[in-house]
């Protein structure tokens, strides 16, 4: 399936311009900090990621990975610091605005539309991307391309047989797949995946892994991934960042991270390959 569509051509032009000055990071944070009461969940994080790479964030439970994601995609407002997308300060933009700028997000805790059918969950995301979501004078069936595309995406995550089910009735693993299909439907330039395989059965993981692999190999998307499955991280990532208690303790290429003493001690050594 071609990942480029009419709706995102404009985004692409923007991207190509970016490509020229390749060294500038696509996403950057400056002293990003958030406090919940007295607790500093993310502490002055200076983070950069390059265009069309796959970066992973690892760290023990409660390290602040999800919170960091939430500030990047706009669910949380930082107490301090800024977020930049292609050099533009987006710290004060809403999640919807950031999505329109090409940032797509999947959630660690399953986050779908429970009363809508499986197909509809994906279709609603497609109509957002295609920009006809505010049309109220035509029937949604008029836009049959969106429905066809939604079905294709369900095939891709191996959920097509359940297309007509109410999504609340899915099993946990199926909901995770739906979550990913919704993300793919947005065709974001930057994909933020928060533990995409969490709680999935072992036999379901390869399909997701394959999707990530394919997106990565196309080299036309930027991916930021939070995961606990170390083998998956090591094989997929271009770079890995390690968070602990809200602070970056290491950032580098996989084998660099693997050898790093600080990381061994803080995280890998603990044998914390969850699930």
């Amino acid at each position: 399936m071609g990942l480029i569509c009419a709706g995102s051509v404009k985004r692409y032009l923007g991207l190509c311009k970016m490509n020229a000055k390749n060294t500038e990071p696509i996403i950057e944070t400056k002293d990003l900090t958030i406090r919940f009461g007295g607790h500093v969940a993310v502490d002055h994080v200076n983070f950069q990621m390059q265009l069309f790479t796959l970066k992973s964030i690892i760290g023990p439970n409660g390290a602040g990975k999800t919170t960091f994601f939430n500030m990047l995609t706009g669910q949380y407002k930082p107490t301090e610091g800024q977020v930049f997308l292609k050099g533009q300060d987006i710290t004060n933009l809403s999640p919807a605005d950031r999505t329109r700028l090409g940032m797509g997000r999947s959630f660690q805790l399953t986050n779908i539309f429970p009363m809508l059918s499986v197909l509809e969950n994906v279709r609603v995301a497609i109509q957002s991307r295609e920009g006809f979501g505010l049309n109220f004078w035509k029937s949604y069936l008029h836009f049959s391309d969106a429905e066809d595309e939604a079905y294709e995406l369900l095939q891709e995550v191996l959920l097509d047989e359940k297309w007509s089910a109410t999504s609340a009735e899915l099993t946990h693993g199926e909901k995770r797949k739906l979550e990913i299909a919704i993300l793919l439907a947005l065709k974001p330039e930057i994909l933020f995946l928060d533990e995409p395989t969490a709680g999935m059965g072992q036999e379901e993981v390869p399909a997701i892994l394959e999707i990530l692999q394919r997106i990565k190999e196309a080299r036309d998307r930027t991916l930021l991934l939070v995961e606990h499955k170390m083998d998956m991280i090591m094989s997929l990532s271009d770079t890995i960042m390690v968070l602990q208690e809200g602070r970056i303790i290491a950032d580098g290429e996989p084998d660099e991270i693997y050898r790093s003493e600080a990381v061994q001690e803080a995280y890998l050594g603990g044998g914390t390959t969850r699930e």
């Binding site: 986050n111 779908i112 995301a125």
Partner: peptide, 11 residues
């Protein structure tokens, strides 16, 4: 069904 999610997909 889920307002924050609707916002997160760009609405």
């Amino acid at each position: 069904d889920n307002e924050p999610r609707a916002e997160a997909i760009g609405y």
